[in-house]
Computed example of a mutant assay.
Amino acid sequence: VLFRVKPIQFRLVPRRLQQARAASLARQAFLQQGLHRTKGATGVLIFVSEAEHYVEILADQGIAQHVPDSEWQSMVDAFIAHLKRGDVAKGFQECVAACGDKLAAHVPATEQKNELPNHLVIL
């Protein structure tokens, strides 16, 4: 019964397990949104689980080969700092802008129409 109360649930479930579940959800969302199906393998997902203070940026192969994990991690760390302060909106804004800067440098925009919609998905 205690596990049904969210604040108690988050205190009782080990942090490692919470983050493993969030990471699994991030990968599921990447596939469900079809981000792996773009022509140039250029899909990017910014996954945020506010309760766990978990953020992950998943990039398809076409982008991942150009941007090292350390650069994504610095964006994630900045976003998590915003989450801990309760400033989710500013965290999103800065993370999206930073991702945009990385993409512009490594995978420049083309005249083609976006293959995927740019929108927020709440699970």
Results as ranks from 00 to 15, higher is better:
R4Q: 14
A104E: 08
G34A: 07
P68W: 10
G91M: 03
D69C: 05
S49Y: 06
A20Q: 15
E56V: 11
L17A: 12
K102P: 00
G62Q: 04
L35N: 06
P117Y: 10
A78G: 03
S74T: 10
E111G: 09
W72E: 00
A22C: 10
N114L: 14
Y54F: 11
G100V: 00
E71T: 06
L17W: 15
F47S: 05
V96S: 03
A98M: 01
W72D: 01
E94V: 01
P108Y: 04
Q33I: 10
A64E: 12
L2K: 13
A109P: 01
V5N: 12
S70Q: 13
L83R: 05
A26G: 12
G86W: 04
L35M: 09
Y54P: 02
F92N: 06
K84I: 08
A98W: 00
A29K: 10
P108R: 06
S24G: 13
A104W: 04
L120A: 13
L12T: 14
Q93V: 05
K102G: 00
V67R: 00
Q73Y: 05
S74I: 08
P108G: 04
H66G: 02
R16H: 12
E94H: 05
I46W: 05
V107D: 03
P108T: 07
F30N: 06
A104P: 01
Q19A: 03
Q28R: 14
A109I: 06
G43A: 03
V96E: 04
D60V: 07
E50D: 10
Q32R: 15
L45V: 06
F79C: 05
P108E: 01
I57F: 02
N114H: 09
Q9C: 12
M75G: 02
V44Y: 01
I46R: 01
A109G: 02
R16C: 08
H53C: 07
Q65I: 14
L25A: 13
A104T: 07
G100A: 00
H66P: 03
R11N: 15
V5D: 14
K113S: 07
